[in-house]
Simulated assay, not measured.
Amino acid sequence: MIGLVGIVIIFVMVFGGYMLAGGKLGIILKALPFEMIMIGGAAIGAFVISNDGAAIKHTLKDVGRVFKGPKWKHEDYRDLLCLLFELIRIARANPIAVEEHIEAPAESSVFGKYPKIQSDAEAVALICDTMRAASMNYDDPHQVEEVLDKRMEANRHHAEHSIHALQSVADGLPALGIVAAVLGVIKTMGSIDQPPEVLGKMIGGALVGTFLGVFLAYGFVGPFAAKLKTVIEEDLHFHQLIREVLIANLHRHAPNICIEVGRQNTPGHNRPGFTELEAALKATKDAA
């Protein structure tokens, strides 16, 4: 919602200020379709050239996240801590009993309590792979930590591809606007015998290209890339929390201490309160 508000503000302030200063929209509106075809079409073509099919689909899908915001909310972090607590507690009491949950998470009664987390393939894989390594006595915390760091770095690199793709388009739009403007000037020079009022409109129409390229780059595509970066970084905190809790578990800290480590590493605006989390963990124990 706030993204739509930002778009409205951009249009109102830019074009409202232009009209208040005495500008006429007629020249812009007349030239806009043709300039948009040249600039927008060239930007789309460059985007297609520089990305493969999977990256194009990924980027288009990620554009929606600009308006939806981060996937993981306050209650999801609380649920994740409760899920990890229950799995750690089961593994400490009976390492064999936890296998049915980490080997078949889609059928697990523990994962089933948290369907949103269960539906996230990477979050589930991080939990199950790390706990499986611990059950195989691959329990050197430093080795596991290194493996997790490399895996999460690879995930980050993949997730940020959309950011780089959008930023590349934003960087190229001003230059494409100049290309469209130059073509407009060429067209104007072909009509140099026309009276000044006609030439003035043609030159104004040509300059719409420069305006449009800069406007789209710094008013829309660039901010979209910046917002997407914020959303992706915040969602990656969810996986980072899994790492912190499970590494603490490998250090053989008490389950409550492992969960507190995770709580302290949760972003402040999503961090559950100590009392709130204690109540949730107590409910988890009582339900077991």
Rank of each mutant, 00 (worst) to 15 (best):
I2N: 11
I2E: 12
I2R: 15
G6S: 15
M13N: 11
G16Y: 12
Y18C: 10
A21K: 14
G23E: 12
K24M: 06
G26L: 09
I27D: 04
L32C: 08
L32K: 06
P33W: 06
I37M: 13
I37Y: 07
F47L: 06
I49S: 03
S50R: 04
G53Q: 08
I56R: 07
H58D: 15
F67K: 04
K68P: 02
K68F: 13
G69W: 09
K71C: 06
K71M: 12
W72Q: 00
E75F: 07
D76M: 08
L80F: 10
L81F: 12
C82N: 01
L87M: 12
I90S: 00
I90W: 02
A91M: 13
I96R: 07
I96W: 00
A97V: 02
V98T: 15
S108L: 05
S109T: 12
S109H: 05
V110L: 05
V110W: 03
G112E: 00
K113R: 15
K116A: 10
I117V: 11
Q118N: 14
S119P: 00
S119L: 04
S119Q: 14
E122Q: 11
V124I: 12
V124Q: 06
A125Y: 08
A125W: 08
A125G: 12
I127W: 04
I127S: 11
D129V: 06
A133H: 09
M136T: 10
Y138K: 08
D140W: 05
E146S: 09
D149K: 14
R151H: 10
R156S: 14
H157L: 15
H158Y: 13
H158A: 14
A159Y: 03
S168Q: 10
S168G: 11
P174G: 07
L176C: 04
G177F: 03
G177E: 07
V179W: 11
V179M: 14
A180F: 07
V182Y: 15
L183H: 09
K187F: 07
K187G: 10
K187I: 08
T188C: 11
M189A: 14
G190E: 14
S191D: 09
D193Y: 02
V198W: 01
G200L: 01
G200R: 05
G204W: 01
G204P: 02
G205Q: 10
V208T: 06
G213L: 09
V221G: 04
G222P: 00
G222Y: 08
A226V: 15
V231A: 01
D235R: 03
D235F: 04
H237W: 03
H239A: 06
H239N: 13
L241Y: 00
R243Q: 09
R243P: 00
E244V: 12
I247N: 02
A248K: 05
L250F: 04
H251K: 14
A254P: 00
I257R: 04
V261Q: 05
G268S: 13
H269M: 14
N270H: 05
R271Q: 15
P272A: 05
P272W: 03
L277P: 02
A280Y: 08
A283P: 01
T284W: 07
T284D: 15
T284R: 10
